[in-house]
Every structure is written in C-alpha cells, then in structure tokens.
Design a protein around this nucleic acid. Structure first.
Length: 829
DNA sequence: CTCTCCCT
C-alpha cells in the first residue's frame, strides 16, 4: 500500500486519540467542524490499525454527490483513481475492485448489504459521516450496526462523525468522545430585524442591495424558502450591478452549475438559493450571506398518508450552516434578518428524520431484518408507534406483511428492489401483468423530478410520452437533463428485471393501472358536479388544477398530491379504467347515521375503500348493526341526540354522588358522561328497538334504561342513602338537588319551614349534611349554609332585621329553634 | 399564485 502523507489539517492533531479510542472501544464519537479533514483524510490514517486486521472500511455519506466526491478526494490522497484502494458505491453504480479497502457508500447501500450479510464479513470499521443530520437511514444503520456488534461481531468498530456536538450523544451511545478543531475563516454575524409581516423576498432584496454597497468584493449568497420567493427577489434585484442567479433543486443542471461556479467574466454574483445551498452544494467565492430566516419543509400526516408543504423558521443549527458559507475562502459576513432575541427562541435543530418521515421503507426493512417490532432495537429515537402503524397498514395492503406484521415472501421480493415499497410493488406486479417496460418508465418518472413542470397539466401519460419521444431521439417536450436521468433510471430497472424496451405511445389506462398499484389508497372517483373534484379511496377529497384535461376522466389513479388545507391538490395522476375499480370492489353492508337528515341509512354497497360504486337499500337490518350505528352517531354528534329527563338526570346525580362519597362500595355503576358514552351499546341498546330517526331517538325514555343498571338491592339502598326528597319540620317534602360531582345535595326551603329544627339534615347515612339554601317567603335565597344551628344563633337575627319589614305577614320569632314551623302566613296559624 | 431536501 502506498504511504499516506497527511497535509497540515486539524484532524492530524487528534489522530492518535481517535486510533486509541477505536482500539479500546467498539463505538466512538468524533466531533469535528467542517474543514477539519475528517472525511477526506481520516479513513486513510486508520487503514494500518492492528484492530482492523486488514479488513475494509465502509464510510456512509448521506448524498450521492458527496459519496463520489469524498471517494475522489481519498483516492487522490493516495495518488490513485477511484476503484483502487478507495471505491464508491451508490445505487446502480459500483466503482470498486478486489483491491478496495475503503468503500464510500450512500446510506441505503449499507442497509442492503446488512440484509444480505448481517455479519458484514470483510468489514472491520463502519464510519457514519455527517451524523448530525440525523437522517433516517443513518439512524437505521446505527441501530442495525449496534445489534450486529452485540450479537455477531464483537470485533466490528463503528465511528460516528458529526460536525456539530450533541452533548448527550456520547452518553446515550456509551461511547468515548474525541473532539477536533475545524478550519474555517471567521464570519461576522449581524442581526438585522425586519418587519415579520413583510414579505421575506423584499427584505432579502433590500439587504442584498445594502450588502453590495457595504462590501466592495466577493459574491453574495441569500437564503429564501422556495422558488416563488426566489423569483420575487430576482425581479426586485433586476437593476443591480451584479449577476443575479437562482439556485434550487428543480433547476436544470446547467443553471445549477452556473450558480455554483465563479462568473466566467469575473463579475460579482448574487445567488438566491433554497436550503439546497446549506449542505448539498458548495459555492466558491461567497463572502456575504443574507439569511431570510425561513425554510420550507414537508410535513407528513400519518393519518392520511399525505404530505403538505409548510414554511417555518430556520433552526439555529441551519442558520449556523448558512452563516458558515460566508467563511469558506476568506473572512466573511452573515446578515440574519431577525433579532438576537428571536434567535435565542429558535429551535436548536430539526427533529431527527425518523420522527417525522414516512416509515414504510424502514418498517419493511425491519420486518426483513426479523424485527417486526421496531422497539426491539436500540434507537437514539424510537420510530413513533402511530407512524409505524400506518406504515404497516400500507405494507399489508401491498401484501408485503402478514397479519402479524411479519414479512411475506412477496415482501422479501419487494425488499430486493432498491426503491420505495410502493414503487417496488408497481414494478413487481407490473412485470406480472405484462406491463414491465411501462412499469420501468412509470417507476422512474415517479421517483424523479417532473420533466414537464407544473404548467403542463397533471397527466402522467404525457410524461411517459415525453420520455419515449426523447428516447426515440425526437426533440419534444420536457427538460433534457431530467429526461436523461429518468431514461437512465428506467434503463437500470429494465436491466435489473430483464425487461424489453418500449418506445411506443403509452396506453393511458395502463399507466393508471400501474399508478394504482403503487398508491392503492389514492384511486379516485369524480364527484358529482365535476369541476375536477375527486374523492380518494382513502377518504380524502382532492382537486385538479383549474382547467386540467384529466377532469373529464370519471376515475383517476393519483400519484402525487399534497394535503393542502381541507381539500388536497393533485399534482400528478393518470386516468383509471372504471372497470378496474369494479374488479377491485368488495361488497359490504353498511348501517350509518346520516347527520344531515337525522336518519339511519342501511345499504348494501360495492366499494373500494371510501369509494361507493353501487348502493342498494337494505331492508331488515340486524339489531346489533343498528345499535352500533346509533351509538356511533351519539358518540360523534354528542349526547344532545338523547333526552335526559329531570328524573333521569337526578338518578344519575344520586348514583354519582354515592360513588364519590363511598368509593369503597364498588357496586354502584359508573354513570358519568364518559362511561355512559363508552357503554351505550350495553345500557341503551335494548331500548333502541324500532329507532330509526332523530325524533325516535329523542323519544327514548332513558329512566328505565338507567334504572336497569341498578340491580336489586341497589334501588332500595339508593333511596335510603340518597333520597330524592326530605321531609322538613313544616311537613313539606322537598326535593334534593344532587350533582354529578358529589357536592352536598341542595335543600332549598323557606326558612320558616325549618323553625324548631336545630341540626342540618343529612343524607348518605348521616355522613353528609345537605347544603341549605334558605329562602325568603318570596322564595329568594337569603343564606346558604351547612350549619343550621349557627344560622339560628347569629345570622338569622340580621336576616330578620332586613326582612321583617318587607314580609310582615310572616312569622319572625325571637326563638326560631323552638317556634312552630310553617308554610303559611301568620293568620293561618 | 405554483413543491424544501434526500435515499436503496
């Protein structure tokens, strides 16, 4: 092996420490800022280590461009070409040989390799680079590697490399930490708060103008959330003395290159970029960064399986990345268009991808690994259970998992295809249907950027036609660089699956059929009234752009849509043969409550998910089905669908009061709102015979239904402990007011009726004094008390002073505790 | 009134 020469890089200083740590520990964390040389030099310096025992090093990179570039730099350090001692491997592209000792791979490659060879034979060290990004695949790789270390390979080493320090990481991994200095020029960070109500593109354009004036040389890089804002800022900067260039992912390759390289004429440049310029692309010659402070990200809703775009504040680590871009070649300046106070309130970092992403690929990988339950592995952050559950539902739909969420033979076949399980399913079944060549084209198109762009309608068939025209060598529609990438990918699928090529115009229904394989829950039927509005089998509504020709199609297979707010927006779809929906349909009897008309609807339906193709009314519906539908309606629409009479409400309150007062007596049934809603079927069900409409439901007498929950001898005991009425000294039977929360029952009575009574009456077997609401002769409350004796002794006399004049016909004796009680005025006495 | 970025 050639001798390695180490340039004067910061990483050289910590090299002995890294070597020692790896000799002693199977897992080591290395923190080194950009420019330290950790990716491009360090692996070479570990090749001769005794613990490696001549085995290979595998280094993970999160992006393909990075994997290729890092491999090139490492090979250069040895004076070799890639494919010798240093190789690289990304999907469909291996540059390795028998001599290769360092393999730089993208993250998914390692997962594939582990699935085929869990012992990772011939590999002594795995390096996870850019681990601070916490990509889903890096988290998965780490979890799998730790399991391999524990169960199969105690000699395997793992080196986790991170540009930023998560101080908790070494502890959580039980791994030693080595820290290195970085190499970067100082960046002067300045905060320039702007009006948060204003448009970010205007604020950025203003700052760019000021920066051009304040800094006589160097290029300016500005960060904006998306294409729309970039266009806005470009038109606001049309007159500046500099070349203004956009930079975003969907930009044609040639234009991306123009934004990355220095101006050939040596003019100053202003590059307006999305977050793509944070890490993925590096620009030469930037001295000033203007950060608008926003970024646009996708939010996945596991409930619907749909995503939508949201614009949010940058995180602090992203803002640091952006600022750092000003100090690559010389000292620089970064302007942040927010205040230092706002900065302190920003989130430190984006949540790890595993907490937010679609987990279908990960869930299938784990099932293939023999871990149907992800919780069995040691994660830094465990994949959230609800997302795992929705991923499982999709994978079962694709027949990739069985009822116990174990991988099926078919799931194992899908895992062999290096793509998302949805597209693997499309390819797998497309081949079986004899549509292999088309499946390869459709799968490639669905995975890559749209070659036509959003102005070109949403029909995927047009994209297939454009791709095939391009392959025939015609100059047709579509961006050549994107078509070339798609064409290459489609060719790779054809080679892998040994499929013929097909350049004839595509059959639109065949395209739709293939899309429906990948997105079974997104087959859609046009809604009544048309207008491009569709209902998806998954139950959501979605709409085509205004005037889209696909609106004429009665059924669609939708590939890409975003959840929008309320109604989704369809970006890419194909017409679907209604006969295919018919084939897929199953029959079900449904009984449901129509909240609009307030009636039970019972019908036999032919349906695909939420799409009802045909419905016939159903005559004799089974009692249980009716009860269930009514119970659901009450739970959904609220208890006001029922009528609790005062007697029924009082019964509930008495029982609930006893449950509060006598928690040790478990025989009292739970009559709280929540419990009654939970058990509607049991207690209300038997009383729903013949109930069909809202009025029927309102007329149901709930008192006997609730009474049935009190078996003998509880009714008698209830009357004893929580009587409905008490007889007061005057002889009146006065109703007691109980409450569900068990406060003392209220006894509202004119105070003259209590003359002669010295103690407060009680319920609950003498344990609970009632709450007396003492009333004036006119029935107005004059005192609330639970202590009648002290009322007679003191407050009574003040009350008497106030009221005697107003009610002269009523008795106001000096000795209320011994006076005769009365309901009447004095004369009647 | 338009969709950030990335991977097998």
């Amino acid at each position: 092996m050639p001798r390695v020469k180490f340039p004067d890089l910061p990483i050289a200083e910590v090299l002995p420490e890294v070597r020692a740590a790896l000799a002693a520990h199977p897992l080591v964390v290395l923190q080194a800022p950009p420019g330290a040389g950790k990716s491009t030099v360090l692996p070479l310096a570990l090749l001769d280590q005794p613990w490696l025992a001549g085995q290979a090093i595998v280094m993970l990179q999160p992006r393909r461009v990075a994997a290729r570039a890092v491999a090139a730099r490492l090979a250069e350090g040895l004076g070799e070409e890639v494919g010798g001692t240093v190789g690289s491997r990304v999907r469909f592209e291996a540059r390795v040989s028998a001599r290769t000792r360092i393999e730089v791979v993208t993250e998914g490659i390692l997962t594939r390799r582990l699935q085929r060879d869990p012992e990772l034979s011939g590999v002594g060290l795995v390096i996870l680079d850019e681990f601070h990004e916490r990509s889903l695949n890096a988290d998965l790789a780490l979890a799998l590697l730790r399991e391999v270390q524990g169960a199969l390979r105690d000699d395997l080493r793992v080196l986790v490399m991170s540009a930023t320090l998560d101080p908790a990481l070494p502890g959580r991994l039980d791994a030693p930490l080595v820290q290195s200095a970085g190499r970067a020029y100082p960046v002067d960070v300045q905060y320039l708060p702007t009006d948060p109500a204003g448009r970010v593109e205007d604020a950025v354009a203003r700052s760019v103008r000021e920066a051009l004036a304040a800094h006589p040389e160097g290029d300016i890089l500005a960060f904006l959330p998306g294409v729309r804002e970039i266009r806005g800022a470009m038109s606001a900067l049309a007159d500046v003395q500099a070349v203004v260039l956009p930079l975003y992912g969907d930009l044609p390759l040639a234009e991306q290159r123009r934004a990355i390289l220095p101006d050939p004429g040596g003019r100053r440049r202003v590059v307006l970029a999305t977050s793509i310029a944070e890490t993925s692309l590096t620009l030469a010659g930037v001295r000033v960064v203007v950060d608008g402070g926003l970024s646009r990200t996708q939010r996945f809703d596991p409930g619907t399986g749909l995503t939508r775009m949201v614009t949010t504040r940058v995180t602090r680590d992203a803002a640091d990345q952006r600022a750092g871009r000003a100090g690559r070649t010389a000292p620089g300046t970064a302007y942040r268009l927010w205040s230092e106070r706002t900065h302190a309130a920003l989130a430190a970092a984006r949540p790890p991808e595993i907490l937010e992403a679609d987990l279908a690929p990960l869930t299938l990988e784990l099932a293939g690994w023999g871990a149907p339950d992800p919780a069995a592995l040691a994660w830094l952050d465990e994949p959230p259970a609800p997302r795992v559950e929705s991923a499982r539902a999709l994978l079962r739909d694709l027949d990739a998992l069985d009822g116990e969420n174990r991988i099926t033979p078919r799931g194992a076949a899908l895992l062999e295809l290096p793509t998302h399980p949805r597209l693997a399913h499309l390819l797998h079944d497309g081949v079986a249907l004899g549509l292999g060549a088309l499946a390869a084209d459709v799968a490639a198109l669905l995975e890559e950027r749209d070659p036509l762009g959003s102005g070109a309608g949403t029909d995927l068939t047009d994209r297939v036609a454009a791709l095939r025209a391009w392959r025939r060598g015609e100059r047709g529609r579509g961006e050549a660089a994107v078509l070339e990438r798609i064409g290459r990918l489609s060719g790779q699928w054809r080679r892998l699956l040994r499929l013929p090529s097909d350049d004839t115009p595509p059959d639109p229904f065949a395209v739709g059929q293939l899309v429906a394989l990948a997105y079974p829950e997104r087959v859609a039927l046009g809604r009544e009234g048309g207008g491009g509005r569709f209902l998806l089998a998954g139950g959501q509504g979605a709409r085509l752009p205004e005037g889209d020709p696909l609106a004429a199609s009665p059924a669609l297979a939708v590939a890409h849509l975003d959840a929008g707010s309320g109604e989704g927006r369809i970006h890419l779809a194909a017409p679907l043969d209604p006969a295919l929906l018919e084939d897929r349909a199953t029959t079900r009897d449904t009984v449901r409550w129509d909240a609009r008309t307030g009636t039970l609807v019972a019908q036999r339906e032919r349906h695909v998910g939420a799409l009802v193709l045909e419905a016939r009314p159903l005559r004799d519906l089974p009692h249980e089905a009716r009860v269930k539908a009514l119970a659901d309606a009450i739970r959904e629409g609220g208890p006001h669908l029922l009528t609790f009479s005062p007697e029924a409400e009082n019964l509930r309150a008495r029982v609930e009061s006893l449950r509060h007062w006598r928690p040790e007596e478990s025989e009292w049934p739970d009559l709280s709102d929540a419990a009654l809603l939970d058990t509607l079927e049991d207690w209300l069900g038997p009383h729903l015979e013949g109930v069909r409409t809202r009025d029927d439901l309102r007329r149901v007498n709930l008192l006997p239904a609730l009474g049935a929950l009190l078996p003998w001898p509880l009714p008698a005991r209830l009357d004893d402990l929580a009587p409905t009425h008490l007889t007061v000294p005057s002889g009146s039977r006065v109703r007691l007011g109980y409450t569900l929360d068990g406060s003392p029952p209220i006894l509202a009575v004119k105070l003259q009726e209590l003359f002669g009574l010295s103690e407060t009456p009680t319920v609950n077997g003498g344990r609970t004094p009632v709450l007396l609401h003492l009333l004036s002769p006119a029935g107005r409350p004059v005192q609330v008390t639970q202590d009648l004796r002290s009322f007679w002794n003191s407050s009574y006399f003040e009350v008497r002073k106030d009221l005697r004049g107003r009610y002269p016909k009523h008795p106001w004796p000096d000795d209320p505790w011994s006076h005769a009680p009365t309901r009447h005025v004095k004369k009647r006495l």
